[in-house]
Structure formats: structure tokens, C-alpha cells
């Protein structure tokens, strides 16, 4: 009889087996709706619902966080949550087809089942943003994480908590713009402004043409007490930050969200660190003031 005679004598509280075993266990979710975002269909938005009602109760997230999505048999990939927590009952993920998992996701059809593990990471500093003007600067699929915060702020529940909301969004071409139906909705709102730009127009494009950082400079939002939130390709982020600083924004007023190769999502597997910070746990949201303090290894 090899009873657990010494294990029971272990000092310290025993972990709750229910919680400890489940760190890597995803919730099962069904894809309810798939939206083709781009003309080349390299970006799709997946609307998913948990099969287990209780899963939704346990999945409390805030804008800026991400989840590990599973295609069983292929693997997991970290994807930012693009829906706002003010939208009850379902989650949205916008996924660009890049690697094995994202390609497998793109093969799935409505009704298919995936795994969702999370939410992980920190959130946009919403409390610090209350009462202030917010400028969003997004590029390409980089609008996805921003969209969660935008819709949170635009929700009837929270709109009054924030000042002006201005959005500058751009993509390489008109066909690469994501969330087009929502951009139109935002365009019509009176309590915010939206400028959409493309690097190169086409025959049908009547809007603005120009790189996002240049458009930012042209619009030249006043720093005041505003907060600038940016996400997009690394090169865009670099010049946006540079231009924001030139416009007089302090490093603390600039917020961005980073991408890294991730596996565990909980700061253990060791690959997403920048210096001593784990992007999956201490990030993905950082202020430029924080980024200046860590190595340029991203």
C-alpha cells in the first residue's frame, strides 16, 4: 500500500486540483459567424460562442487582452480579442492568415468548433484614460485590438467617461481595410471622428491617400491631456511614435500593444520576454515610457 503518507505532510496549502490542472485546458467554442474582412481574404473575423454557459461567466476580459485559440490537431495561436466586453455573450477574433494555426482557422467554416484559452495579458490602461481625449492610430490588422477598446468607449454605458475620440486608420490598399462595415458606422457617429487612409488608392477609392504616420502629422492632434493608442505593423508604430513625440506627446501618453511568438500565454514557456517582462503577462499593452525602459528586442 503506497498511500500518500508523505505527500499529505507537505507543508503549505495543497493546490485546488480543479484550478491547477486546467491551466492549459481550453474552453470549447463554436464559430457562429465568419466575416471576410479583406479583398484578398487574408483576414477573417470569427464570432465565437462558448458551448458551456459557465465558461462565459468565467471569461471576464478587458480591452487589450488576448486568447490562445486552438485548432485541434494543428495547435494554438495567440489572438487579440477584438470584441468589446460590453458585447455580451460572444467573442470576436480577427485573424490574419500567417502560420499553421491561423491558416487552419481560415479553413474552418461556420459551425466548426475551436478551443479558446484565456483571457491573457494586461489591458489598456482604461482607468487612466477616463476623462481624457483619446486618439487611436491603427494600421491594417492592427485595428483589431484597438477595436475592442474603441467599442468599449463608444458603448452607451461608458461613452460619457471619455473625452474626444479620434481615429486614424489606414491600410496598404482599400481592399486591405478591415471592419469596413463598422468604419461606416463610426463615420456616421457625431461623438467621434474617423479618418481612413490608404497607402495606395484604386479606381474606386475617393478617400485619403497617404501613410498613417504622415496623416497623423497632418491632422496634428493636440497632446493636452490626451492619450494616443496605436497598433499596426512595427514600422508604422515606429514612425507613429516618433511623430507623436514631435507633436508634443509625452512617452506616458503613448500606448501601444506588442506581438510576440507565444505558446503558454501565462509567462512560463519563456519565449515572449523582452528583458524581464513577458509580453503575454506584463503586456501586450505598454506605454512608450515603459518600452523605453526595456531592451529593443521586439
Amino acid at each position: 500500500m503506497r498511500a500518500l503518507q508523505y505527500a499529505e505532510q507537505t507543508p503549505g496549502p495543497a493546490p485546488d486540483p480543479g484550478t491547477v490542472r486546467d491551466v492549459y485546458l481550453p474552453h470549447i467554442a463554436r464559430i457562429r459567424k465568419i466575416t471576410q474582412e479583406t479583398d484578398s481574404s487574408d483576414v477573417k473575423t470569427f464570432e465565437v460562442v462558448f458551448l458551456d454557459e459557465n465558461a462565459w461567466q468565467g471569461f471576464k476580459y478587458a480591452p487589450g487582452q488576448f486568447a490562445e485559440l486552438s485548432v485541434f490537431g494543428v495547435g494554438e495561436a495567440p489572438i487579440s480579442i477584438t470584441s468589446s466586453p460590453t458585447q455580451e455573450g460572444y467573442l470576436e477574433f480577427s485573424v490574419k492568415r500567417m502560420g499553421a494555426v491561423t491558416s487552419a482557422l481560415h479553413y474552418l467554416e461556420e459551425g466548426a468548433v475551436i478551443g479558446v484559452r484565456g483571457p491573457y495579458g494586461n489591458t489598456f490602461p482604461i482607468d487612466d484614460m477616463r476623462g481624457r481625449d483619446i486618439i487611436f492610430i491603427g494600421g491594417g490588422i492592427g485595428l483589431a485590438p484597438l477595436r475592442s477598446l474603441i467599442n468599449y468607449m463608444l458603448s452607451s454605458k461608458y461613452r460619457a467617461d471619455f473625452g474626444r475620440i479620434d481615429i486614424i486608420y489606414g491600410a496598404r490598399s482599400p481592399g486591405d481595410l478591415v471592419f469596413k462595415w463598422e468604419l461606416e458606422k463610426w463615420q456616421q457617429r457625431r461623438d467621434m471622428s474617423l479618418v481612413v487612409t490608404v497607402d495606395r488608392g484604386d479606381d474606386t477609392w475617393t478617400g485619403k491617400v497617404g501613410f498613417v504616420p504622415a496623416v497623423l502629422k497632418e491632422i496634428a492632434p493636440a497632446p493636452g491631456g490626451a492619450v494616443a493608442v496605436t497598433c499596426g505593423p512595427p514600422i508604422m508604430i515606429k514612425f507613429v511614435i516618433q511623430n507623436l513625440l514631435e507633436l508634443g506627446f509625452a512617452p506616458e501618453q503613448i500606448v501601444t500593444t506588442l506581438e510576440m511568438r507565444m505558446k503558454c500565454g501565462i509567462g512560463k514557456c519563456g519565449r515572449c520576454n523582452i528583458g524581464s517582462k513577458y509580453v503575454c503577462k506584463d503586456g501586450p499593452v505598454f506605454t512608450y515610457a515603459q518600452l523605453r525602459e526595456i531592451p529593443k528586442e521586439y
Binding site: P15, P17, V23
Partner: peptide, 14 residues
């Protein structure tokens, strides 16, 4: 304190 890895902990405690 933040995330407990049950697979490791089960072996460690045992």
C-alpha cells in the same frame, strides 16, 4: 502565485 501548473505541481508534491 499567479498561474499554477498542475502537471508540474502534481509531480512535485508527490
Amino acid at each position: 502565485t499567479d498561474y499554477k501548473d498542475g502537471h508540474y505541481i502534481a509531480r512535485r508534491r508527490g
